[in-house]
Design a protein around this nucleic acid. Sequence first.
RNA 1: GGGCCGGUAGAUCAGUGGUAGAUCGCUUCCUUGGCAUGGAAGAGGCCGCGGGUUCAAUUCCCGCCCGGUCCA
Length: 913
Amino acid sequence: MLEEEYQLEYFKKQGLTRKVCKSCGSAFWTRDSSREICGDAPCEPYTFIGNPVFKTHTLDSMREAYLSFFEKHGHTRIERYPVVARWRDDIYLTIASIADFQPFVTGGVVPPPANPLTISQPCIRLNDLDSVGKSGRHLTTFEMMAHHAFNTPSEEIYWKDRTVELCDQFIASIGGDITRVTYKEHPWIGGGNAGPSLEVLIGGLEIATLVFMSLGRQKTSSPGYDLNGEMYYPMKLRIVDTGYGLERLVWASKGSPTIYDAVFPEMVSNVMSSAGLSHMLDNKEYAKILGLNAKFAGLMDISGTNLFQLRKKVAAAIDVSPEKLDKMITPIEKVYAVVDHTRCLAYMLGDCIVPSNVREGYLARLVIRRTLRMMNELKIHEPLADLVEQQTKIIGMTGFEQDISVVREIIDRETEKYASTLERGTRIVQKIAKSYKTKSQRVPLSEIITLYDSHGIQPEMVRDIAIKEGAVIDLPDNFYSMVADMHSESKKEVAEDKTSKYSGRVNALPPTKKLYYEQSSDIEFEAIVLDFFDGYVVTDQTLFYPDGGGQPADTGTLVSSDSMVRVDGVIKIGEVILHHITGGVLRRGERVKGMVDEERRWSLMRHHTATHILLHAAKEVLGAHIHQAGAQKGSESSRIDIRHFKHITMEELRKIETEANRMIMASQPVEVSIEDRTKAEQKYGFSLYQGGVPPGRDIRIVKVAGDIEACAGTHCRNTGEVGVIKIIRVEHIQDGIERIEFAAGLAAIFYMQHLENIVISSSDILSVQSENLPASVSRFFNEWKEQRKDIDRMSARLVELEMQTLVAESIGGIAVVIKRIDLPAKELTSLAASVSETGGVALIAGTGDTVRVVLASGDSRVNAGEIISQVCSLLGGKGGGKPSMAQGGGPDADKLDLALKVGRERIIAALHG
RNA sequence: GGGCCGGUAGAUCAGUGGUAGAUCGCUUCCUUGGCAUGGAAGAGGCCGCGGGUUCAAUUCCCGCCCGGUCCA
């Protein structure tokens, strides 16, 4: 298909020949005329274990060797990007070096930061989480070293030949024998792009991939290619996208049994010691087994049940039982995984991820809990924070935005949280297991689903505890998919988008001139009507700000020579602004005068500028990880959601508020500029993208009191114009996200006046000065509690006294009291209860707004519940209770004597049987 | 954002449309040479907040607040 793509001049000149692998049938290029196999797994096993193919390098020395090699060959070295892809909204984590330049650079919208460039980009991929530690080669975190060249029609940097040549030369520079290298043809497709690609193999290991991204899904005039049923066409921009696995290069340079021993030997030995496994460190037997294990694992996918196959193979090779082998190496595999995961956490938390139950925060929590589980299994008692800090130090503190003390605090909190979830879970499961055991029933599936769904308890844990408690439980294999099915039932429909309805008509119009940017403090303008349909007016220019960026649209009026209409909504479709009007019509070509509602506009601007100020103040008070998770501006109050790992305390809130108002009082100018995206990113970092990632080559940068963001909203001219910020409340809206609600400007003043009114009216009620309000309220509350107790005591005393005056008649040897006593319901009840406690029967009635009747029976023959309902129905009401105690009432007080008489008769009848 | 579970004594939790409970902890006393322990008595509750239904709500219904959890 793309065969001719691989016929490189360089291959011919260097004497490489194209061969077809005898094992898999793939084409590859080699200098070794006797070679018959492509050199890739599973065709060829690892041969470098025990026989390094490069000069020994550490991570740092290998990285430096690579970057300086490419620098020497005309590339500019670029600093790494964060492992959280904040410049993208389609992925959470940076998964490849090219991800740094997607979508704007690769889409040709923005020029690259340098061309050609070289970078070593830490990447995180959690797809093979289960294999980490077990396969000997999988990592969650790896550095993809790369050199990229971006070729345009006007500027050719270099393409395939030079890329392969540089690869050969680099391999030679680190002591590799290029006659052992094979280049395997491997057409590449991904993310809407495609192109030829070469896998670089040596010693059975793939150490790099050289991708020549040259095809895209967008149709061009050139003929296209059909790849897997999709058409791809040549792109204007052709990109050299290489990826050299730093860790793999280091592994191959050491020839150690696993990649883990090669990449982080200090941590492996630290964690081994903590787990009490240090005796295995220099054990040749273990090294041999682990090497074999990696070799076999290199030939297969070990996810799921395949792991058992791997065990069997390795066990057979060293002649022990698979069970014994499993026991021997499982703890070591866990150590490897712990080491890998802690490195992953150092990057995640160092780059300011806040663990939570959403997005990348969820991924961080997943890794933390997984690590804690394994540490627990290995009986490592060292705090996780210590291990992560060690990793941070090994990686080198520079390049991490987050303070290590915050990282530690986050981990400690997560550790505690996990422990309490487990503890709570254990108690709940024990209780449930016991109750089903006593009922001698199986624990039903519905119960297990509830435990998982509502309490986050893994079904495996339910099973373990249930067995311990002696309960029986059935756990289906497809448990998780059953839960997933249950959730998928409630899918919601997506509302129809207005913009798509009008886009055809609107696209024909010229872009609207946005006066609200240049003259944000003006409120009047003149314009010409370009179109009018469905209540929407489009003009050539406007001061009306449209809905967007969390800022609501302006309102106001449009006046023409013969009519005046109200603007009640403004939207933006593409570059055209549509005003929704009511109360009249406008004609195309008409001249109109527009007036924006001044107070509302100012209030919105103040709130918007205040949002930036608050975000900055929060960052100063709470730490580098503070990022906006959402915001909604209003004219009376606004809110900003920020990512934070714990509740914001009152003290912190006051500090943020004070800081924010200090920034206002400094009255610094708000600077707005249009800047080149790449340059802005390098100058200000990715914290630019707080409110999402805007499209386009140039982005609008707004600087407010030290806060720098890409923002399209309208702002005050200086921070002083905000006036004042008053925080109204802080709310914990979900795990890892705190919402601050606040008011700015006049709205803040109104809010404070409102608060003052509450205080004044409350103090008026108590006739105290505002200053004494808290003390008085607490005194009143305590007195109220004391008095309630007094009342309880007194009513108990009252009941006692009443008891002494009660005259009981004896019916069949049972003391029966039937009496009217005007006491509150509670006393009637305890009085009746006192009688029944001594075996008597008491029917007591009291009158108030309505009649209340209590019947207590100390004799099983008298069923209080039955009798009371009859008594109450005579009173025009209802009543009921237990056989020993019943209450009720009704409105007809004049029928009380009759009701008591009937009650008495029923009691006598019951006692006489 | 959607769903589910929960909020009762200092802690952990029962429970009920009809007099609010248990265990641990706390206080005092007794037992003992002292301690562990054992025994007895006692204090400690706006049954999360607001509204509704009811003769009666901690309990049922609705809204809110708070905590937990699963899924996007």
